[in-house]
Amino acid sequence: MTEVKEKKKNKSRLKRRRSGFILLFLAPTMAAFCIFYLYPIITVFVTSFCRWDYTNITSPEFFGFSDMWNNYDYIFHTYPYFWEALRNSSIWALLGVILQIPIAAVIALALSRKVRGIRIIRNIYIIPNMISTAAMGIIFLQLYNPSYGIVNQVIRIFNKDFTDNILLLKGPAFIAMTAAYIFFTGTTTLMILGNIMAVPEEVREAAMLDGASGLRQDWYVTIPMIKGTLRTVSVLAATSGFLLYNEVYFLTKGAAGTYSISYVIRELAITSPRTQFGRANSVAVIQILAGMVIIVAVNLLYSVSLKKKEGRGGEAL
C-alpha cells in the first residue's frame, strides 16, 4: 500500500518538475515574443482606430464606432503618398518573385557546375550581401552622382548632354533604386545552390540517360526538384521587397515618386514635425495585412505550378 502511494507521489513530483522545467525554458522566449511582437501588434490594431497624434501623445482617444475608420479614410483619400507607396512596395514585392528569384536561380545553376575558380566566384558573389544595405545605399548614392559617379558617364556615351541626377527624375529614380539592391542575390543564391547540391545524383544520371543535359536538364529535372526551396526564398524576397526602407532613405528620401510603405509609416510616426501615430498605425495594419496576402499569393502560385508539373519539391522551411 505505502509503496504504491510512494510511487504515485514520486510520479506527481516528477510531473511537477517537468512542467516547471518546460515553463522555465519557454518563459524567456515567450516574454520576448510578447514584448516585441504581441504587445506592439495589438497596439497597432487598436490605436489605428484612435485619434492619436502630436497633440495627445500620452492619451490615444477612440474615435467612436461611427467614425472608427477615420484614420483609414485620411490615409486613403487625403494623405498624398499612400497610393504611390503601396504601388511601389507592391512592385518591389512582385519584382522579388519574378526578377530576383530567377536571377538567383540561374546564377545558382551556373555556380553548381565545375568550372575552374568556381569557388572564388561564389565567394565574391556573396560579399555584397555581407555589407549592410545602409552602406550599399551610400555606395550607390555615389555611383549615381551626376558629377563623379559612373552611371552618368555611361549615359553620356549615348547622350552627350545628359547632366541630370537620375535619382531626381521620376521613372529613372525608381529603376535606379531597384537596381541598387535587386541584383545582390548572394544569400538567396546560396540557399538555392544548397538545395541543388542536395539533389540525388541518381536523378541527374537518369535524366542524362533520357538525353536531357545542360540547360534542358536544369529546366526539366533540377528546377522541379528544388521548388520547395524556390517557394521559400520567393516568399522571403517578396516580403523584403515589400518592406523596403533603407534604400529609399539613403537614395531619394521618397523624392521623384519613390515612397515605400515602410517609409510612409516612419515618416508619419517619427520624422514628421506633426507626428500622426494613429494614422501611422493604420498604415501599419495595411502593411501587415498586405504582407499576409503576398505570402498566400506566392504559396498559391507555387502550389498551382507544382500540381501542373507534378514535380517533387524539397522541404519548405
Binding site: 506592439p40 497597432v44 501599419a284 502593411q287 504582407g291
Partner: peptide, 16 residues
C-alpha cells in the same frame, strides 16, 4: 514572427 513586418511595429516599439 517570420512574417510580421518589423517596420509595421515602428511606433509601438519606439513608444515602449
Amino acid at each position: 514572427t517570420m512574417f510580421i513586418p518589423a517596420t509595421a511595429l515602428t511606433y509601438p516599439v519606439y513608444n515602449l
